[in-house]
């Protein structure tokens, strides 16, 4: 069974959300449209809807995270689910319990959904293949592989600002090699029909055969950013770098750091995005990160609506009869 198949139930609906790769354009649009509906909930006096009342969501984080875990938690709570946060370095696995024992234990607590973050690529997929049939798994980032809810909140942010995708030029800059965000984003951008996706990076930070993903490769910022509608800066993932891929951080900033001057070649209404956390002065200068083109904080708040949409979709897969309005 392929990664794509395991994500869908027998009726083609989303059961697990592990990667944006291989999902249909319609399904990705459904996520964005549902997120649009949920976005209004955060503006009300009571920021809650009762959709997932009685369901238990377990945040299973094997790797540290602030914004992903907290926005997943908030999303689940706004859907009225009960939330359990498990930071694995502090739990039984550090006492020698195996992963499958941990899963069985959580299943015995009648959990309905696992949100998984893990530093091994494929971890969420593995867990999805192991869990009881009624449990849905959402990938909150696995190794270098995928971070699909991040990609969808980025697409949501782009659509909010640009309206449509088909005419857009999107430049993704930086450490593509180690970035699960970049991989998931590239699949989402191409599936949703963006005009041109560019990656701008030194050769040492590009995966082999990156062109096969449908992107244009640039090594020079000024050429890669020319007339771009969206500039997406990636975090330099120093914790994942095992060898000297860079001459120095200063040199990196000089060549690939986003400055006002380099941004000037993009379109006047360009938006600047970053998945966070930001390394100020390494991949982006503060005046750009906090400047008028930046939508970085909007990305965070959109993360709640998008994660609500995905959670509601995987939990409510039984929509086959159009119930009459009663």
């Amino acid at each position: 069974m392929t990664v794509t198949n395991i994500q869908l139930d027998s009726n083609g609906r989303l059961k697990h959300f592990l990667t944006t790769e291989g999902l249909s354009q319609q399904l990705l649009l459904d996520i964005l449209n549902h997120a649009e509906s949920f976005a209004g909930v955060g503006k009300r006096a009571v920021k809650k809807v009762p959709l997932l009342r009685g369901k238990t969501v377990v945040n299973l984080f094997f790797e540290p995270s602030t914004r992903t875990r907290t926005t997943f938690e908030l999303a689940a709570k706004r859907l009225s689910a009960d939330v359990l946060n498990l930071n694995i370095p502090y739990s039984s696995t550090s006492k020698g319990e195996t992963l499958s024992d941990t899963l069985r234990t959580l299943e015995a607590m009648h959990s309905d959904m696992f949100v998984v973050r893990h530093d091994n690529s494929g971890a969420a997929h593995y867990i999805a293949s192991q869990v009881a049939p009624h449990i849905s798994v959402i990938n909150g980032g696995d190794g270098r592989h995928a971070h699909p809810t991040q990609a969808m909140l980025d697409m949501f942010t782009i659509r909010r600002h640009k309206g449509t995708f088909s005419s857009l030029v999107v430049a993704i800059v930086g450490d593509i090699l180690h970035s699960r965000v970049a991989r998931s984003l590239i699949h989402a951008l191409t599936t949703l029909g963006v005009c041109e996706v560019r990656v701008v990076a030194p050769n040492t930070l590009l995966p082999a055969e990156v062109e096969k993903l449908g992107v244009h490769v640039f090594h020079d910022m000024r050429r890669g950013l020319a007339d771009a509608d969206v500039v997406y800066m990636l975090r330099l993932q120093r914790e994942r770098m095992r060898s000297a891929l860079l001459p120095s951080e200063n040199e990196y900033f000089y060549r690939y750091g986003l400055t006002r001057e380099k941004l000037a070649v993009a379109r006047p209404d360009v938006i600047v995005m970053h998945p966070g956390p930001i390394n100020r002065g390494i991949e982006i200068e503060s005046s750009v990160a906090d400047g008028e083109h930046s939508v970085i904080l909007e990305q965070v708040s959109h993360g709640i609506a998008v994660r609500m949409a995905v959670m509601a979709m995987v939990m409510g897969r039984f929509h086959d009869n159009n119930a009459e309005g009663t």
Binding site: D30, H34, S37, G40, P50, L51, F318, A323
Partner: peptide
Amino acid sequence: LNIAFYRDDFSHIGIHPRVTPSN
């Protein structure tokens, strides 16, 4: 008002494909 998120049959019929938000 769009009551899609408040229906009591969510666990039977799931989320509606397109929900115009309440305003």
